[in-house]
C-alpha cells in the first residue's frame, strides 16, 4: 500500500471549539492512503467527531489538512467536499428532503448528474443498502437504523474518494452491524470511521488509531494493542 496516493493528510492539526479553553484536537498528524480503512477509536469526548469535522472543513483548524492532494482552505472547500462522503452521528440531521429517493439522488445532482440517471443510481444504492423498499418513504417515518442506512446511501452514492463516518454502527442491532461492517470492508473508498465499538472496527478496518484527550496515542494495525 506504500505506493498508493494519500487521500487524507493531517500535519500538526489542532482544533478548538469556540468558547472552549482547551483543544478538542491537539497537534494531530496522520496520513491515510487510497482505499485504506481506518478506525478512529476513543472514548466519548476524546475528539473523534472533532477530527472528522475538521477533515471536512466543518470546524476551523490550525495546521494543515490535505484531502486528496487539495489543501483544505476556504477557497477549496467545495472542491474538497465533492471528494468526501460524510455521515453524521445523528443521521436525521443530514436528511434534507421529504422523500428518501430525492435525498439520496440529491448527492448526485449536486455533482452535475442528470435527474433520471441520479434517481436510477440512487435506487440501486438503496437496494444495496437493504432499504430499496423505502425509496418513496418520508425520512420522518423511519427507524433510527433505517435513517442511518438512508444517510449512508446519500454519503456513498457519489463514490467519494474519502468517507468520514461518525459512529455508523451506533444504535444498529447485531445483524445490522455485521451487514454494515461487511459492506464497509468491501467498499473501495478510503474510510475514516469514528467508533468505540472494537468488534465493529476489527470487522471493517485494517488500521486503528486511538485518540485520548484530542491526541493520537496509538496508530497500529493490531487491534489487540488497543484497550478502551
Amino acid at each position: 500500500m506504500t505506493d498508493l496516493p494519500i487521500v487524507l493528510r493531517f500535519d500538526d492539526v489542532s482544533v478548538r471549539h469556540s468558547g472552549s479553553h482547551v483543544d478538542a484536537i491537539h497537534g494531530c498528524s496522520l496520513e491515510m492512503k487510497e482505499g485504506e480503512h481506518v478506525a478512529l477509536l476513543g472514548l466519548n469526548g476524546s475528539g473523534k467527531t472533532s477530527l472528522l469535522m475538521a477533515a471536512a472543513g466543518l470546524l476551523p483548524h490550525e495546521g494543515t489538512i490535505d484531502v486528496d492532494g487539495i489543501r483544505l482552505e476556504n477557497s477549496s472547500l467545495a472542491e474538497v467536499r465533492r471528494r468526501i462522503g460524510f455521515l453524521f452521528s445523528t443521521p436525521e440531521d443530514q436528511l434534507l428532503f421529504p422523500r428518501v429517493l430525492d435525498d439520496v439522488a440529491f448527492s448526485l445532482t449536486t455533482q452535475g448528474r442528470k435527474e433520471g440517471e441520479a434517481r436510477e443510481e440512487s435506487e440501486r444504492m438503496l437496494e444495496a443498502m437493504g432499504v430499496g423498499a423505502l425509496a418513496n418513504a418520508a425520512p420522518y417515518e423511519l427507524s433510527f437504523g433505517q435513517k442511518m442506512r438512508v444517510a449512508l446511501s446519500g454519503a456513498l452514492v457519489h463514490k467519494p474518494r474519502l468517507l468520514l463516518l461518525d459512529e455508523p454502527s451506533g444504535a444498529l442491532d447485531p445483524p445490522g452491524k455485521r451487514a454494515l461492517a461487511a459492506l464497509f470492508a468491501a467498499h473501495p473508498s478510503a474510510m475514516l470511521i469514528a467508533t468505540h465499538d472494537l468488534v465493529f472496527a476489527e470487522r471493517c478496518c485494517d488500521r486503528f488509531i486511538l485518540l485520548e484527550a484530542g491526541k493520537v496515542v496509538r496508530d497500529t494495525v493490531q487491534i489487540g494493542e488497543i484497550t478502551l
Binding site: 467536499r81 460524510f86 453524521f88 440529491f106
Partner: peptide, 16 residues
C-alpha cells in the same frame, strides 16, 4: 448540525 450538513452536501448550489 443541519447547517453543517447543508454545507457538506452542497445544499443551495442547485434547486432540485
Amino acid at each position: 448540525r443541519v447547517g453543517m450538513a447543508m454545507d457538506m452536501r452542497g445544499y443551495g448550489a442547485i434547486v432540485p
